[in-house]
Design a protein around this nucleic acid. Structure first.
Length: 911
RNA sequence: GCUGAGGUUGCCGAGCCAGGUUAAAGGCGACAGACUCAAGAUCUGUUUCCGAAGGGAUCCGCCGGUUCAAAUCCGGCCCUCAGCACCA
């Protein structure tokens, strides 16, 4: 549809406020939400899909008689907006280019400079793009109630978030503790994925090492390992001969570590003190004691030890580490590997074998050593068993032993050390290490009562696709403490510790409830001098009595808000994409479980698939990130909506590409021209085909409804769009009258199509002389009692035609005459007996028919009573189709090639 | 590796959960015909193989099992994709 026409309808909808629903106790409500978009840029073709599908659902529910609320707000918390604003202020070329691109969508070139300057303030970025997204969404015809719009940065909403966190705190779900983060020593700041060089393509994660203390007479040594279970195989310790070593004070104990690790250790354990350099000859070749076993082992030098990694001290397990084995061989120390891990029957793998197999000669074969190490670690971890002589741990699997040995060591001879999963540096080039925050705030999702309640929520919910229900149970079991506050970023201050800002996923878990009463909450906030007291929030959300007294005006707003919340909440369906499942949706469910009673719990989640463009992942650099504004203008929003709905299943990948778009466009054009050319044919009566069309249409409509109710949006749209179009073609091909056929269904067809292509349907609806909005119409189903015989009759004719064709093909006969013999009355009666009462009841004179009946059973049917009339009425059509005379009879024949049966007349082609 | 999803006829993609009505929807492509000066668009038919009568054979990643009957249920194997966390 012409973008101008689409804008016309958008404007009319807006003026008539038909998508801003009020409480209506007479109608069932339906609240549908999609996570709010993060407003740091304009949205593209990929983002629009979920919103489009949600809008199709919202509009569908509306025509089915629900009071539908589809609200939307904007997310502005977190670091990205801040980071971009900083980058723009710094004059970062890449950021400027990106934002110039965004701005070109909306502004003249002369304005761009002005806006870029404004974007030095993060709030301006957020405000600007929220406004554009509203416009873009309006331009796509979404039936969103914008009157309830708010953002995560709005003061009244932040009061809600604060209330939420106090409640969680009261419930004992907020904790404080140690937490490892990626950190730049040089910048003295936490670093995120965006700050790390290649952080997006090659992710850096935090690994947890066990730093084991080996005590000696003067001081101890600390060596960290991912494999604490191997301490039974230790033969020696390694240090790097080229590195300085320091003594540190750790809880009153003197320990030696590499100079390169001291700072990191202090960042992880602030109580550690650097006591300065220790001469290496006080370490090398001295002996230290292995914990648990009490064995004394010497320290050897080796250059393979990385002084930056761990503590710069390595304990040597030649029996189970390729590096250690090869290093010892290089050194020629004559130390034999000790084997402490066995495999089950039939499996054997040793370091010595691997070294031979990979042909490793010395420490310089780093590639081969890494390969061998990976194989060895994997095999030992998954199938290894602790061998004899490992004291309490013999017979344990390596996995179990690792945990329990670690536990034992941590009691007095070890501490946790964190290390990055790879060497990493920031974009600025400074080194990234792991620091440990001592006072990180968490939401504790591991509490048993909360898990139990959350499982209960999940059990009652609709999930589409349904297998995500099991997935969600697993995620709930797997969630532990989650850091819920950060030291930087936009957001709400933690109410009980204002140094912290609530982390951006944690501030957006229960916000859909705010949609139900955003206007009133904002009003109250304003009225009370920019303050939204907690007892008011609590009262509206949970029904707890108010603790304070307020003016009549405020009391009025409070009760209005409470009524609205009562009517609209919980969310009937939340639609989003799969990346949200393990985080946002899980928090959404668990926070609701924690804070609300059953009636306010989420009721359904529908996951929509991702979008690719021209077969490739959407990205700015590929140039395939088409903005939603451009979509609406150059393709038309109805085409985009139809394409999103029909070209792929709700849950699978959608490929936005020109070829497929054009195919959909063609069908769409056919639809429009068919409806546009409709003229009421007056009193013309319906024939067989038209009757068939009408019944078939309502069958499709029924299918549409049952599929929409299951969120099979694609299947539903195929039914009511492609299938109906095909049916119309069939009417045409069978010589039926399209206008007559359409007359019966056209009104309902427009109503049913309006959720998908609302602008088109409004325009056609008006052109047909209807008043009001088709979007506000209600579809009334004709009920299930519709007579299906026109369908059976049409199938009968189709089968007859295809049989004639098949015979003609098999025999090569182009008939000059076709003789059709329909089963006569007496055969019909006998067939009825055969089908209902069994062969023994058949009259004797027809017994000879039984074998033939058995043979042709699957084609025989007594659904149509007047076959002779039916074929006769289609005679002209058949004669035209086959360009020959058709003779129709109805008689018993004992001699013909085939006996006629009800539903299966005999056919004879005459040359 | 773990967790989840999936491998269907030239391609995309239904169906499998509730086994038979499935040579297996629909679309695309291909081929033939109609229309046209021609192309496109549109319409009709065909599109695993065999067939001089509406029929038959083979078929749904691989191997095996259950069953009167399996694309559909069970077991094993091979392969593909997604997620694996503090990041919005």
């Amino acid at each position: 549809m012409d973008p101008e026409i689409e804008r016309k309808w958008q404007k009319r909808w807006e003026e008539a406020r038909i998508f801003e629903p009020d409480i209506d106790p007479e109608r069932p409500k339906f609240l549908i939400t999609v996570p709010w978009p993060y407003s740091n840029g304009s949205l593209h073709v990929g983002h629009g899909r979920t919103y489009s599908l949600a809008d199709v659902v919202a509009r569908y529910r509306r025509i089915m008689g629900f009071n539908v609320l589809f609200p939307m707000g904007f997310h502005q918390s977190g670091t990205p907006i801040l980071a971009y604003s900083e980058r723009l202020r710094r004059g970062d070329k890449e950021a400027i280019r990106q934002y110039t691109d965004y701005l070109r969508e909306y502004e003249n070139d002369s304005e761009i400079e002005h806006y870029l300057n404004q974007f030095n303030e993060p709030e301006n970025i957020a405000q600007y793009f929220s406004d554009r997204i509203v416009k873009d969404f309006r331009g796509l015809g979404y039936s969103i109630d914008w009157s309830r719009r708010f953002t995560s940065a709005e003061p009244f909403y932040q009061d809600v978030v604060k209330w939420q966190f106090r409640r969680l705190h009261d419930l004992g779900l907020i904790k404080q503790g140690r937490y490892p983060i990626l950190y730049s020593i040089e910048d003295q700041n936490a670093v995120g994925e965006d700050d790390i060089k290649d952080g997006d393509t090659d992710k850096v994660s935090v690994e947890e090492f066990t730093a084991v203390i080996f005590r000696g007479p003067e001081f101890g040594m600390v060596a960290s390992s991912l494999r604490p279970e191997t301490i039974f195989g230790i033969t020696n310790l390694w240090i790097n001969p080229d590195e300085e070593y320091h003594i540190i004070d750790y809880m009153g104990e003197r320990l030696a570590v590499s100079s390169g690790s001291v700072q990191k250790l202090i960042l992880q354990n602030p109580e550690i003190k650097d006591l300065g350099i220790v001469e290496k000859d006080r370490i090398l070749y001295h002996e230290f004691t292995v914990p648990i076993t009490g064995k004394k082992v010497p320290v050897f030098p080796s250059k393979f030890v990385d002084p930056e990694n761990g503590t710069g001290v390595v304990y040597s397990v030649p029996g189970h580490s390729v590096w250690d084995y090869v290093a010892l061989k290089d050194l020629g120390a004559g130390i034999e590997p000790i084997k402490i891990i066995d495999f089950p029957e039939g499996k054997e793998l040793t370091v010595v074998d691997l070294v031979k197999q990979k042909n490793i000669m010395s420490l310089s074969d780093t590639e081969s050593i890494r390969d061998a190490t990976a194989i060895l670690y994997r095999e030992e971890f998954y199938s290894g068993i602790m061998g004899n002589g490992n004291s309490d741990f013999s017979g344990m699997s390596v996995q179990e032993a690792r945990e329990s040995i670690k536990k034992r060591l941590l009691q007095e001879s070890a501490f946790i050390l964190y290390e990055t999963s790879r060497k990493a540096e920031t974009r600025g080039g400074s080194k990234v290490v792991v620091a440990v925050l001592q006072d990180q705030w968490f939401i504790d999702y591991s509490v048993p009562w909360l898990k139990k309640k959350s499982h209960a929520v999940v059990n009652e919910m609709l999930f589409e696709p349904s297998h995500y229900r099991d997935g969600m149970h697993d995620i709930i079991d797997w969630l532990r403490e989650r850091p819920c506050a950060r030291r930087r970023g936009i957001g709400t201050k933690l109410p009980f510790d204002e140094r912290w800002t609530i982390e951006s996923l944690s501030d957006s878990t229960i916000y859909p409830i705010v949609y139900t009463c955003a206007r009133q909450l904002r009003e109250i906030h304003k009225n009370l001098g920019n303050n939204l007291p907690e007892d008011i929030i609590e009262h509206i959300f949970t029904g707890e009595p108010l603790k304070n007294s307020y003016s009549d005006e405020v009391m009025g707003l409070i009760s209005e808000a409470a009524r609205s919340k009562e009517y609209w909440y919980g969310v009937d369906v939340r639609m989003t994409t799969s990346p949200h499942i393990t985080n946002h949706l899980a928090f959404y469910i668990m926070n609701h479980a924690a804070l609300f009673t059953e009636r306010d719990w989420p009721k359904g989640i529908v996951i929509s698939g991702l979008v690719i463009s021209e077969g490739a992942k959407i990205s700015k650099s590929k140039g395939n990130a088409i903005s939603l504004l451009k979509i609406a203008n150059s393709y038309s929003s109805d085409l985009y909506r139809l394409f999103s709905a029909i070209n792929s299943e709700t849950t699978s990948v959608l490929d936005w590409n020109e070829t497929d778009i054009n195919l959909v466009r063609k069908k769409y054009d056919t639809f429009v021209s068919m409806v546009e050319s409709f003229k009421d044919p007056g009193v013309t009566r319906m024939g067989n085909v038209e009757r068939w069309f009408v019944v078939s249409f309502y069958n499709h409509a029924k299918d549409f409804i049952s599929r929409m109710d299951k969120y099979d949006i694609r299947g539903a749209c195929i039914s009511v769009f492609y299938e109906v179009l095909n049916d119309l073609k069939h009417v045409e091909a069978r010589g039926g009258n399209i206008m007559v056929a359409l007359r019966e269904v056209i009104r309902d067809w427009l109503v049913l199509m309006s959720p998908v292509i609302p602008h088109t349907c409004e325009e056609l609806w008006e052109k047909m002389g209807n008043h009001g909005f088709v979007s506000a119409e209600r579809y009334i189903s004709p009920g299930s009692g519709m007579d299906q015989s026109p369908i059976h009759r049409e199938n009968y004719i189709e089968k007859l035609i295809s049989d004639i064709r098949e015979i003609s093909r098999a025999t090569g006969i182009k008939p000059s005459e076709i003789r059709i013999n329909v089963a006569p009355r007496e055969i019909f009666e006998t067939t009825s007996i055969l089908m209902n009462e069994g062969p023994s009841k058949v009259p004797d004179r027809h017994k000879y028919l039984i074998p033939d009946f058995m043979k042709n059973k699957k084609n025989i049917s007594i659904e149509i009573v007047d076959e002779l009339d039916l074929i006769t009425s289609e005679r002209e059509y058949l004669e035209n189709l086959f360009s020959c005379r058709i003779e129709i009879r109805s008689e018993v024949s004992r001699s013909g090639r085939a006996n006629p049966w009800p539903g299966r007349p005999s056919i004879e082609l005459v040359r």
